[in-house]
Computed example of a mutant assay.
Amino acid sequence: MHVTSGLFIFKPIMLTLMTNDINVTKSSVSFISKLPFRVDYGEKFNQYIYPITVHSYTAVFAHVFATIAVDGLYYCLIQHACGMFSIIGYTLENIGKNNDDIFDTKQAKIQDSNYSKTLSCLRKHLLVIEFTERIESLFTKIFLINLNLNMIAGSLTGIQVLMNLEKSAHDVAGPITIYVAQFLHLFLHFWQAQFLLDYSVLPYESICRANWYYASRRCQKLLLLIMNRTTTPCKITAGKIVVLSIESFATVVKTSLSYLTMFRSLQ
């Protein structure tokens, strides 16, 4: 996001520096060319050139920092949930490995260390599942809006790239940068959701690798409860409709390209 905003900001400046126009003055035209996006203040533009310039550049940075803040929170929450699943999986995988063939299957609960570890993992697992459900409820509506806007905006940006292919390179550089940044930003959302899908089934795989047959009957019942819950992986959705994953990202890209083809045919 910072690279994209930097290119978006410095592009008009670099183009201004590279122009061969000898009539470069402090008119409104020269200053408008240095702004990152078009503005229209009428006759007051020349009077407030510098405040308008500062406001334009600040608006770009504010938008980028707001996006990074929301995405950073999302990434941190997902990675924390994945870390908790990893801790639970590591603990469950070591269940029964310190026992031998002559362990007591009817030992008391106080002496049954495997049972205590498994009960603790069960409670933590329920808390992590609740945590992931709250993450999903927090971001599901945002991702639905973001997904639709990215597909439409990506298609329109792609049309802009196609329209400027026959023009100079600086007319294509801007739309291509925005086009790549949009899909990269969307890919990171789907990639983090794929992490959650993979790590949420980690306790099930850990139990399968553990020496559960050396655990007591009460401990095995708890392991079955954990395995039963992990059959449905935790997931992040867009409006409870689309499950975010690498596979669904490929579908989104195909849909966006189909929109691009449709808009191109209507041109």
Rank of each mutant, 00 (worst) to 15 (best):
M1Q: 02
V3Y: 06
V3S: 03
T4F: 13
M14D: 05
T19L: 01
K26L: 11
F31R: 01
S33A: 11
F37A: 06
E43A: 09
K44E: 13
P51I: 13
V54S: 00
Y57H: 14
D71W: 03
H80K: 03
G83A: 06
S86L: 08
S86Q: 06
I88K: 02
N94P: 00
N94M: 06
G96I: 04
K97I: 15
D104R: 02
K106Y: 12
K109H: 04
Q111C: 11
K117I: 11
L122P: 00
V128R: 00
I129K: 05
F139S: 11
L147V: 05
N148P: 00
G158I: 11
L162Y: 06
L165Y: 14
S168C: 08
H170C: 04
D171A: 12
D171T: 13
I176L: 15
V180F: 08
F187D: 04
Q194T: 10
Y199W: 07
I207R: 04
N211F: 14
R217C: 05
R218E: 10
C219N: 11
C219K: 01
L224I: 13
C234N: 15
K235Y: 08
A238F: 06
A238T: 07
V243C: 05
V252D: 08
V252S: 10
L257H: 01
S258P: 05
Y259F: 12
L260Q: 02
L260D: 01
